[in-house]
């Protein structure tokens, strides 16, 4: 498997807080990789650094063998590296179908395309993806009127609409009804297999991530604590200590 994303020695400080310290990890193409760690350990910060929200203090980030450390958010997104938000962000005053339509890939859109209508295939794709996440019956509702969990699903569908190569998911099961979580896992796997989208997933729910990921990275206090297969991580004493708050 080739490496899709290569994070090398990334550090990020906010004033005195060290949010990320010399973090290195790589994401192989086609894989599902998990990122875990206690609250405030710097997971979201790493996501933000990867997709270009702020300049990092040190290190380099490569995507498809291309240096993206200095690119801006929209440029990186157009390369096919997309993220969803922990707080869930959708376009609240537009209906779900429009939310989906405007999420079509923007990489090859010229000036004139902004004046065009959306082709029929886009609408069909939007509807089938909404169906896929289980929001088909809500497709004409304003996205802002959906429940938090539904918005999470919509955001996921929007990300798929964008046809990314690598999708960074920030806590995809947070706020989702526990009975539906199995459905989510299954969908993530289907997305990975059928659409060939590589996934890097932040997740607090251990049983979910252990089932889903082939490889896990654990952060603690901004440092990479351990990496390995779910089995190795589950039994790693440092990880257990970090989660139990042992110094």
């Amino acid at each position: 498997m080739t490496t899709l994303l290569e994070v090398q020695g990334v550090s990020k400080r906010f004033g005195g807080i060290v949010a990320n310290e010399a973090i290195s990890l790589s994401v192989p193409e086609g894989g599902i990789i998990g990122l875990i760690g206690p609250n405030g350990s710097g997971k979201t910060t790493l996501f933000n650094a990867i997709v270009g929200y702020y300049p990092i203090d040190a290190g380099s980030i490569r995507f498809e063998d291309r240096e993206i450390t200095r690119l801006r958010v929209p440029q990186i997104a157009r390369l096919g590296l997309l993220r969803t938000f922990q707080q869930t962000r959708i376009y609240g005053r537009m209906d779900c179908v429009h939310n989906m339509l405007i999420s079509t890939p923007h990489a090859h859109q010229g000036l004139w395309s902004m004046l065009t209508h959306f082709p029929r295939e886009d609408r069909e794709k939007a509807e089938s993806l909404l169906e896929f996440v289980g929001l088909y019956s809500k497709r004409h509702l304003l996205a802002g009127d959906l429940s938090f969990g539904q918005q999470k699903l919509l955001e996921f569908a929007m990300a798929l609409m964008n046809e990314p190569k690598l999708l960074l998911l920030d806590e995809p099961t947070a706020g989702i009804n526990p009975t539906l979580i199995n459905g989510i896992i299954e969908r993530l796997q289907r997305v990975n297999e059928r659409l060939g989208i590589t996934l890097l997933v932040i997740e607090h729910n251990m049983s979910v991530i252990m089932n889903l990921a082939q490889e896990l990275h654990c952060l603690s206090r901004g440092r990479l604590l351990a990496s390995g297969t779910p089995e190795q991580i589950r039994t790693d004493q440092r990880v257990i200590d970090a989660y139990l708050g042992v110094q």
Binding site: A77, L82, R89, Y91, G92, H106
Partner: peptide
């Protein structure tokens, strides 16, 4: 509705 999101979507 959300410019940051729009940027994040490319």
């Amino acid at each position: 509705d959300d410019e940051d999101k729009a940027e994040a979507m490319g």
